[in-house]
Design a protein around this nucleic acid. Structure first.
Lengths: 245, 245
DNA sequence: GTCGTTCTGTGCGCTAACGGACATATGAGA
DNA sequence: TCTCATATGTCCGTTAGCGCACAGAACGAC
C-alpha cells in the first residue's frame, strides 16, 4: 500500500475509502483539486433540487440523505460516511435529486468540484467502476430502508441506525439528540426515548444529553432486524476493504 | 424519428423507451442480440443474490423489484415498465442484488445477454448515459418508496401504486388481485380491500376478482401523496420522452 | 345447473405508534 | 452556586394497521 498516497501519509483526520482505493496515478491527478473541508453538524451539504457544485468524500463525518415532505416531516433515505461520497446524482447524469444531504455527525470531508469529477468519471476506468459500485451499495441501503420502514419496530430501526452510524465513525460513540434521531428515522421523539430506554436498560448503550455510547455491539446485532446485515454484506461485497490507517 | 428503427417499424406489442431513445447506430448494433420474450405473470425474472444472465427491457409488462424477508413478508422497492430495464446491478458492477424481480403484469420484454450489455456499457457514450439516468430515476423511486412506507396511509400508497402501474400500461386497467397488491405494498390483504373499497365508492376505480379499472385518474391524483408526483417528475426530467408509437 | 375454488367483505380484539401535555433531569454559563 | 435552556421521561387518549376468523360472492369446471 506504500505507493498509494491516499493510504498512508495524508495528514487528515482519517481517510476516505473510495479515494484510498484509487490507483496512485488516478489519485495523483485528483489530488490538486481535493480540498479538505470541515463539515459542521447540521450543515445542509446539499438542498433538494439544487445544483451540485461539489461532491464530498467524507473522512470522519456522517452525512444523511433525507427527504423532507411538504408538511415538514422527514425520513432518512441513506447514510454516507468514509466508505462513500455525497453527490452520486452528478455522475448519474441528473445533476440534482429531490433529497437533502445533512451533516449528522461533524467532521471533515474532501471536497471536489463537480466538473472535475464528472470529467474524470467520463474517462471510465477504475474511478468510474468504483463510483458505480458504491452507488449500487447505496441503492441497496435505500431499498432496505424502504423495507425496514414498512415492517420493523422503532427499536429495531434504532438498532440498525446506531450500527450503521458507528460503522462509519472512529469510536463507538456519537453525538446526537433523540430529537434528531427521531427526525432521521421519521418517528416521534418519544418513540426514540422509549426504544433507547430499553437498549440502555439492557446494557447495550449508554446515553445522556445528546451523547450516545455503544457498550455492547454484539447485543445490538442480536436485536437488529435483518436489514442491517443485508446492507452491511452488500457494502462489504461491493466496496474496497478499508485498509488500516 | 423515421431514422430510428426502434421508434417505428418494429413489430412488437409496444416498445421500450430506452431502446427507442438510442441513436440508430447503437440500436442497430444491439438489434441482432435483442430477443423479444413473453414474461408470464408471476415469473421471477431474477432471484435474490442470483447471477444476471440477461437484462430485460419491458415493453408492455410490469416487473416489480421486491425484497422478501426471512419470515416471508415482502415489500416492493420499485416498479419497472417500458421506461426502463430490469438488471441495473449488471452495469453498476455488482452483478447481483439482494432483491427479487417478479412479473406483476404479463407481457413482453426484450431480453439481452448480460455480457453484451456490459460490453456496450463500457464503451461509454449515449447508451451509458441513458442507462445511468434511468438508474437515477430508479433511485428516486426507491427513496420515495422508503418515505411513503414511513409516513403515508395504505390508501395513499394504493393510489401511488395504481398510478405508477397504469403509467406503465397501455390501458387504464390491470389484472391483479388484492392479495397480490398487498404483497407488493407489504400490508394486509384486508387493508387493501378497505382502501380499494373507499376508492370504488368514490367512483375512482372499479374492480372485481382481480381486475382493476381506473375510472377517474385526476381523482386518484388528488388523493395520492406527494410521493407519486416526486417520482413522476424525476422520471420525466431524467428519461427520454416516450414518442408516439 | 352444482360444486368447489378463489376472490372479496366484515367483524372482532390487540398492539405499536401517534399527538399532545407536562414533569424531571442535566450541564453549560453567569 | 444558581439559573435556564435543553434533553429526557412519562402520562394520557386516539388511531391505523395487524392477526385471525369467517361469511358472502363470483367464476370456472363438470
Amino acid at each position: 500500500m506504500g505507493n498509494n498516497p491516499a493510504a498512508s501519509g495524508i495528514p487528515t483526520p482519517t481517510r476516505n475509502d473510495l479515494l484510498a482505493a484509487l490507483p496512485a496515478v488516478d489519485y495523483q491527478r485528483l489530488l490538486p483539486d481535493l480540498e479538505l473541508v470541515p463539515l459542521p453538524l447540521g450543515l445542509a451539504v446539499y438542498e433538494s433540487g439544487g445544483t451540485l457544485g461539489y461532491v464530498y468524500f467524507p473522512t470522519d463525518c456522517i452525512v444523511s440523505l433525507l427527504y423532507v415532505m411538504k408538511d415538514g416531516a422527514s425520513a432518512e433515505i441513506a447514510v454516507v460516511g468514509h466508505e462513500g461520497l455525497v453527490g452520486v446524482a452528478l455522475f448519474m447524469g441528473g445533476e440534482s435529486t429531490p433529497s437533502r444531504a445533512v451533516v449528522q455527525s461533524a467532521g471533515y470531508a474532501y471536497r471536489l468540484e463537480s466538473k472535475i469529477l464528472k470529467r474524470e468519471f467520463e474517462h471510465g476506468g477504475p474511478l468510474q467502476h468504483l463510483l458505480l459500485r458504491y452507488t449500487q451499495a447505496l441503492i441497496t441501503q435505500m431499498a432496505q430502508t424502504a423495507v425496514c420502514n414498512r415492517h420493523h419496530s422503532v427499536e429495531q430501526q434504532l438498532c440498525r441506525w446506531l450500527l450503521l452510524s458507528i460503522d462509519r465513525l472512529p469510536a463507538n460513540e456519537l453525538n446526537m439528540t433523540q430529537e434528531l434521531i427521531a427526525n432521521m428515522l421519521g418517528v416521534r421523539r418519544e418513540g426514540v426515548t422509549e426504544a433507547a430506554g430499553h437498549l440502555q436498560t439492557a446494557g447495550l448503550i449508554h446515553y445522556s444529553r445528546g451523547h450516545i455510547r455503544v457498550l455492547d455491539r454484539p447485543g445490538l446485532e442480536e436485536r437488529v432486524c435483518e436489514c442491517y446485515e443485508v446492507v452491511k454484506r452488500e457494502s462489504d461485497r461491493l466496496l474496497p476493504e478499508r485498509v488500516a490507517s
